[in-house]
Write a protein that binds this DNA or RNA. Structure first.
Lengths: 213, 213
DNA sequence: ATAAAATTGAACGGTTACGTTCAATTAAAA
DNA sequence: TTTTAATTGAACGTAACCGTTCAATTTTAT
């Protein structure tokens, strides 16, 4: 990212009105970047949408690149909520896994995420740091959580694995299939609650079958 | 796409020199679009790279959008080679599946494909038809092939499935895991032949376990 | 109230790029 | 050879956009 250590944007914003404007700028940036990608979005349009002067944007964010990076940061924080169900005690193993898979599917099919995926991946060539930042704060952390959950599930159930991370990756693969691909290329997919649950259950059952003792 | 029925670019190219230039233009377009994405690439740069006048480009391709679409077409044809191994008779079931999985992994990790994925997905918002075109000529066809192969394998082996397409999707999911995600976001992954084979074998064994009678 | 910081609008210079026009040149077909 | 099509370079009009400067105005802290 442009600045991991020095958060230029937020630190200096003593004034509450400034804080408000920064928020509006980031929201406008999000909307523009999501709609047009990085290159095709203009600072002027972002300023107009935010109801803010162009100079104000440049005063808080040094450059277009920086604004984009800062927007990505916020989006990562917003998107990377954990969907791993951890109530292993109260529910049964299979139930917890299915709920987790359902959360994953819900997350995957969110239009917001799909568009974020598209524009962010496109900018990796321009600035590889945004890709790394996203991986570290998103998928990587989630896979670790998932591995931990699966390990616990294996301890409780009649399952085993030599490599929890590989098992977690299989879990992810079984749940996703090529759904993410279809979505990324514009396929409209809105699963009903039943469809989502059915798909989750199929993936979980397959996964459990693989990991049975 | 801009033109699925009337192939403006190729049809009218009687002259062999024109044919040559069209090829060079498409190659240059590929390089530029792959490097900078659609918006950040300029027709002028493409013309320069192709060693061709800008007017020539506009004479064969009506617009930048059209040039991009035409480039995508060519790339789809080039990338969508079938990697499904069909020698079920000569080799054993497991061997054929592993070879197929290996081919998939080889394809997935090709830098060319990764970059294509990035720029194409980014343009889906601008023109959804490119996404649909790609899906129809790439993944969709491949999944069908794979389903057919798996069905044959199931007939020969001690396996079964009620839904071949769903089984094929699981196969894909198991092989890919989240490798495609890592690659898309800039992770450098070059599997050795051994690693590739090991991963393919793991996926295949898991898949066979799921589908055992 | 006064001082300090933030914001604004407008304008500027410089750059880039799309797509078109045209007369001149080159290459190919008849 | 003649005729037809393709190609070129250069220029043009138009538009967009980045990032900066500046004087004027508004907002906030003290």
């Amino acid at each position: 990212m442009a600045d991991t250590d020095d958060n230029l944007a937020i630190e200096r914003a003593d004034r509450p009105s400034s804080q408000r404007k920064i928020t509006k700028i980031l929201a406008a940036a999000r909307a523009e970047f999501f709609g047009n990608g990085f290159s095709a979005s203009s600072i002027e349009a972002i300023a107009a949408r935010a109801g803010v002067s162009k100079v104000t944007i440049y005063s808080w964010f040094k450059s277009k690149e920086n604004l984009f990076a800062e927007m990505v940061k916020g989006e990562c924080a917003h998107l990377s909520q954990n969907f791993v169900d951890e109530n292993l005690e109260s529910k049964g193993v299979r139930e917890v896994l299915i709920d987790t898979a359902e959360n994953m599917l819900d997350f995957l099919t969110r239009d917001e995420r799909v568009r974020f995926d598209r524009i962010l991946a496109a900018e990796v060539s321009r600035d590889p740091r945004v890709g790394k930042y996203f991986l570290d704060n998103g998928p990587r952390a989630l896979l670790q959580n998932l591995a931990t959950l699966l390990q616990s599930a294996m301890d409780q159930g009649k399952m085993q694995s030599s490599d929890p991370i590989a098992s977690a990756e299989m879990f992810v693969g079984l749940v996703k299939g090529h759904l993410d691909l279809l979505l990324r290329y514009g396929e409209k997919i809105d699963l009903t609650a039943d469809q989502r649950r059915a798909r989750a259950a199929r993936a979980v059952d397959a996964w459990m079958l693989i990991h049975q003792k």
